Amino acid sequence: MSHRYAVGQMLDLRSAPRHSNRPTGPCEVVACLPHEKGPVLYRVKSWGESNERVVEEVDLSPSSATKSVKSANERVFSIAIGKR
């Protein structure tokens, strides 16, 4: 079974099972994780969080959200360069 979604694609993260602090809403696929059997897994980053999460493919759905211009052009050193 192959991955349905690609790295960089914007998706909607569905609600988590009870007792989870996982947010719902738009997220970006950071990595497609390897697997031989079991659920297809992805590493995603939600817009409202700074950390990444591993989620199953069934918890993701296509989204109409797009990356903002700022996040697409953001650089690691943008703050240091901008203050010169």
Rank of each mutant, 00 (worst) to 15 (best):
M1H: 06
Q9I: 04
E36D: 15
V55N: 14
Y42A: 05
E28P: 04
G48L: 00
C27P: 09
C32I: 02
N51V: 15
G8Q: 09
A16Q: 13
A16N: 10
V7C: 06
W47K: 08
S15R: 09
V55E: 13
Q9S: 08
V7R: 05
C32F: 06
E36H: 08
A31W: 06
A16W: 11
P34M: 02
E28V: 15
M1F: 03
V55T: 13
S50F: 11
E56H: 12
G38Y: 02
P26V: 00
S46D: 08
N21T: 09
V54R: 05
K45W: 06
M1L: 07
S15M: 08
L33D: 10
V30E: 15
R53E: 15
E36V: 07
E49Y: 04
P34T: 03
V54Y: 11
A6D: 15
V40H: 00
G25R: 02
Q9N: 01
L33T: 04
Q9D: 10
S15V: 02
A16S: 15
G38H: 10
L13C: 08
G48E: 01
G38Q: 07
A16M: 11
L41W: 07
M1E: 09
S46K: 06
L13D: 04
L13R: 12
G8M: 10
G38C: 10
V40F: 02
N21L: 14
Q9F: 06
V55Y: 11
Y42C: 06
R18C: 13
V7L: 07
A16I: 01
P39Q: 01
V29F: 03
L11P: 05
C27N: 09
R22L: 14
M10G: 01
T24V: 07
H3G: 01
V55W: 07
